[in-house]
């Protein structure tokens, strides 16, 4: 059966029109783009908030705000001249005040507790120092490769607790501790002196402000100098969801751009 040419044209045009309008209608009336599937493999660690604050806050403010205070020592908050009294239990262990239960105390100075007493050190058969019970929580010896540098008197003076002694017998105060470290870690000390090792804060342009260098002990616990493992901050959000969430939400009038209200729609890793 043959068609007249006009009829055929009509059919083609009619078909195309229906097809195009159908496509257009399906596009126009389709709901907003569904949230893009998230890859389940990308689990996210909810870490404590990045302290915006670390840049513009004092140490007490930081600690009070629940920030990461692991880098601070006692005197970041306490007055050094009126140091707090340390309470000890019957077994000689230090009793931590409740508010500091979570703090990792760094034993900065023996003579804070040991005033005018002679220190006896007990050795195990393999030469390791036997840690007294009072120090089990405070002081984990882990110095040297394979933790073999465990003898207190490799660094501390045997007779004067607030003095350090290098291998060649030079006596140093605690303030001079970097020199003690240097007696073994020469290249690192040289780097540190040049500002290459360790962080420098403050001003790179020393004509405009002070550059703040850190001592070895600011970052390394001298008894276990390896930097401990850190919980990483969360990584970037999965790529595919970039921007779609907020655009879809704004379409429904659920969130206004620029108001904190829209913040509520996103997961909040920043609050504790």
């Amino acid at each position: 059966m043959s068609m007249r040419p006009g009829q055929k044209t009509n059919l083609v045009i009619g078909g195309l029109v229906v097809l195009f309008l159908g496509l257009a209608a399906s596009f126009a009336f389709s709901p907003n783009p569904a949230p893009v599937r998230q890859d389940p493999a990308l689990t996210r660690v909810v870490a404590p908030a990045p302290q915006v604050a670390t840049l513009r806050m004092t140490a007490p403010q930081l600690a009070a705000g629940g920030g990461d205070a692991s880098i601070l020592d006692c005197y970041a908050c306490h007055d050094e001249k009126k140091s707090p009294t340390v309470k000890m239990g019957a077994d000689g262990a230090i009793v931590f005040p409740k508010e500091h239960a979570d703090l990792r105390l760094m034993m900065a100075n023996c003579s804070t507790c040991h005033v005018g007493k002679k220190l006896e050190v007990e050795y195990a058969k393999n030469g390791d120092v036997v840690m007294p019970k009072a120090h089990e929580d405070l002081l984990k010896m882990g110095h040297g490769r394979n933790n073999r540098n465990t003898n207190c008197f490799n660094c501390h003076s045997q007779t004067k607790l607030n003095e350090l002694v290098t291998r060649d017998g030079t006596r140093l105060t605690f303030a001079q501790a970097p020199l003690l470290c240097a007696s073994c870690h020469g290249p690192t000390y040289r780097d540190w002196e040049l500002g290459v090792h360790g962080r420098t804060n403050g001003y790179w342009d020393t004509s405009q402000g002070k550059a703040v260098r850190q001592d070895c002990n600011a970052c390394h616990d001298p008894h276990g100098p390896a930097i401990p493992q850190i919980i990483p901050f969360p990584g970037p959000k999965p790529v595919l969801t970039h921007g779609l969430g907020s655009a879809g939400a704004a379409e429904h009038g659920a969130a206004e751009v620029g108001t904190p209200k829209s913040e509520g729609a996103q997961p909040k890793p920043e609050t504790k």
């Binding site: 880098i71 500002g195 290459v196 403050g202 790179w204 405009q208 970052c219 930097i227």
Partner: peptide
């Protein structure tokens, strides 16, 4: 204004170094 960038100031390991390369005594020059 002479200060270090924010990323450097929070680095817990001091891996980040910044400075003026035209100053031969700067950290980065070393």
């Amino acid at each position: 204004v002479g200060r270090y960038p924010a990323c450097l100031e929070v680095c817990p390991t001091g891996s980040r170094k910044f400075g003026n390369i035209l100053d031969p005594s700067s950290e980065v020059a070393h």
